[in-house]
């Protein structure tokens, strides 16, 4: 079956962002990272951003394999440091749309420091943070977002540590665009990512994504159950706001959670200062 690429791109325009010779991906059956990647490519297509206008940066973990499949400028770096590498990249080349693909272990545990500082600086980077509640690539260790009571290889009798609320932490640290989507709500996710890319400043899109093979197996959830869990336990921000306080327990709001256009963007502030100090020479 040899369908010419032009034909495929006609039907699936986001295919132009893929390195098809690197397929199939390493992701497990049912994994949500593919959905998030697809949503990102759709967003880029909708915004009319070309392959060579995008830099995609990642650290280590399942989600961090994404740049390998993306046909643009890509940088695969060390565990937890993707945002630090991306900060350097963005400062040097502010004109590039800079997207970081990361996970909960990468961005919140080993790289937690860079996460809060990128948000504090409000640098124009879009962070697509795949939250699958576990270290998937190394086989299922407890992560900073593993829900209390959930099973991981390092918590065989259930997780006893409290977990992070990623969105709240980002807002508190100064992120100016914070949204949450899920791998189940694919179209909505693409819109959230597109808006995040459009937003000038630090954008976080938390993607609730099922780790079907590792987390699902450890917690006795099938692929379908995990996707339906997202359907049944998340609701739009509007619906969430209408919900009385006592009914909110166990429910997760989805959509745009925070949008602040009042704060200046980091690279702009930086280059403005350079200009001012050099008398417009640079």
């Amino acid at each position: 079956m040899n369908i010419p690429m032009e034909k495929i791109i006609e039907k699936k325009p986001y295919f132009k962002y893929l390195r098809l010779d690197k397929m199939p991906t390493i992701w497990c059956p049912g994994c949500g990272i593919g959905q998030a990647f697809r949503a990102t490519c759709m967003a880029l297509h909708d915004l009319g951003i070309d392959n060579d206008q995008v830099a995609m940066v990642s650290g280590i973990g399942c989600s961090s394999r994404t740049p390998g499949y993306f046909d643009g400028f890509t940088l695969h770096t060390t565990h937890g440091r993707a945002l630090a590498f991306a900060t350097g990249l963005k400062l040097a080349k502010p004109e590039l749309t800079t997207i970081v693909f990361s996970g909960d272990g990468d961005s919140l545990a080993i790289g937690g420091n860079h996460f809060i500082h990128a948000a504090r600086r409000n640098i124009d980077i879009t962070l697509v943070l795949i939250n699958n509640w576990i270290y998937g690539m190394t086989g299922g260790q407890v992560s900073p977002t593993t829900p209390k009571g959930s099973y991981a290889t390092t918590t065989p009798y259930g997780n006893y540590e409290p977990n992070f609320d990623i969105a709240k932490m980002a807002i508190a640290a100064g992120a100016t665009y914070v949204a949450r989507g899920t791998a189940y709500h694919a179209t909505e996710l693409s819109k959230l990512i597109a808006d995040g890319i459009k937003h000038k400043g630090f954008s976080l899109i938390e993607v609730l994504s099922p780790c079907t093979i590792i987390y699902g197996r450890k917690n006795r959830m099938s692929i379908e159950e995990m996707y339906f869990w997202f359907k049944g336990n998340t609701l739009s921000v509007k619906a969430w706001e209408k919900l009385p306080e006592e009914k909110r327990a166990g429910k997760i709001p989805r959509g745009l959670l925070h949008h602040d256009t009042s704060r200046p963007e980091y690279t702009e502030v930086y280059w403005n200062q350079v200009k001012a100090l050099s008398g417009g020479q640079k």
Binding site: H79, G139, T154, P156
Partner: peptide, 20 residues
Amino acid sequence: AYPITPQTELMQFFADFVAN
């Protein structure tokens, strides 16, 4: 410990010993 390939398995075995 922190998980990293190819050490991960070692710490998992040990985590089992702790849990049990």
